Computed example of a mutant assay.
Amino acid sequence: MEPLRLGVAGLGVAGDVLVPFVDHHPDFVLAAGADPAAPAREAFAGPGRAVFASVEQMCASDGVDAVYVATPTHLHAEHTIAALRAGHHVIVEKPMAVSMASAAAMVEAADEAGRVLLVGHSQSFEAPVRAMRRIVASGELGALQAVNAWYYTDWMFRPRTPDELDLAMGGGAPMRQGAHHVDIVRYLGGGLLHSVRGQVGQWDPGRPGQGAYSAFLEFDDGTPATIVYSGYDHFPSTELTFGIGEAGRPMAGYAVARRTLAAAAGTAEADIKRGGAGAPGRQRELLRGGTHQPFFGLVVVSCERGDVRVSPDGLRVYGDEQAVEISLAGEPVGRSAMLTELADAVRTGSPAVHDGRWGLANLEVCLALVESSRTRSEVPLAHQVPLRR
């Protein structure tokens, strides 16, 4: 079959990181890009790539079959619905929207258009998480007993645009990074969370926005899970993950983000992020793929007869009598797996795993975490869906 022609809506970091994965994927060809910023369009343009000043113009063209929505979170619903109504399939970046109402409208638009809506890129597309889920589902270590996921980063001190730190616009760690954590935990546990009890933190008055969270999650069957995150550039989780970061690359240095941001004082953070300050933005650098397995911090799956965690080249399974290494060599990396999931859903008509309802359920948990912190109470969940096999 002919490759699907993909248009990228939003040519910032997320869109830029996806480009090489599209170029090397047999089911896709990069056909178009849209961004209001002329420099971004000029950097993207090339043979066979049309460029547009607006997402609506790209969606109205006849040169794309699918759209990757990587615009700011508060624009996700608008751009996703426009693409779906124009007859295109959609991958929308996480978190899928800023509100449950917006997310529900996106799901409804996909249903009405008869098109595939996929939510990504999130960490459950990555090979180690998928492999851990296979172990849980197989029952070889007995029933799942707990999932614990902790991540300490420099997220708050990477160059940020205002919307990335504004909760009302889908910003802050509970929305931006919680979307990954919640996705991991729900994927490993089968999807059906029952409730959330958590706290969010704003720990640095000089860096406004919610930069940390701690939460206790409970599945319908009573299985517990914890997610803990800090983006304040103090303790780095790489000390617990063999020195390897979330893209599978060694991460060295202490408080690099703080020093880099301080040294660039006087330069607009949006320019630094795009690499306009004479060097690639830290976010783009951190997302460049490496040769090891990716680590979204420390994730430990506990079953009746063993624990499982990610190792540099696969998984480490700690059983009753010995620890065993499982290689994941040759497994597709997350963004490639994401593209394959969309192509398979489009061509076979089978439902996608990370569809709109899955993304909506993830969003519900992130919003419930913020609400739980505000009310200092447990928040029940009403829109959870099971993991598709």
Rank of each mutant, 00 (worst) to 15 (best):
A247H: 07
S302G: 08
H76C: 10
M96V: 14
F21N: 11
E2Y: 05
S336I: 09
G15I: 00
V67Q: 11
F44C: 08
P294Q: 03
A82H: 01
L240N: 09
E239W: 00
D65Q: 02
M106A: 00
R176D: 04
A77Y: 01
M156S: 08
E78Q: 15
D307R: 13
L30G: 09
M100Q: 03
T291K: 04
V200E: 05
V107M: 01
H354F: 13
D271T: 12
R284H: 11
A109F: 10
L240W: 10
A352E: 02
A255M: 15
R309G: 15
A212I: 03
T238K: 06
E285W: 00
Y187Q: 03
D27W: 07
V317W: 07
T260E: 03
L4M: 04
V67M: 14
G172P: 12
V64P: 00
V300P: 04
D307Q: 14
A137M: 03
M175V: 03
M132L: 09
T238R: 13
V333Q: 13
G245H: 10
W358C: 04
A40G: 07
P386R: 03
G278N: 00
M169H: 07
H88S: 15
T73A: 00
S230H: 01
G87T: 06
V324L: 10
A173H: 04
A361P: 01
R376T: 05
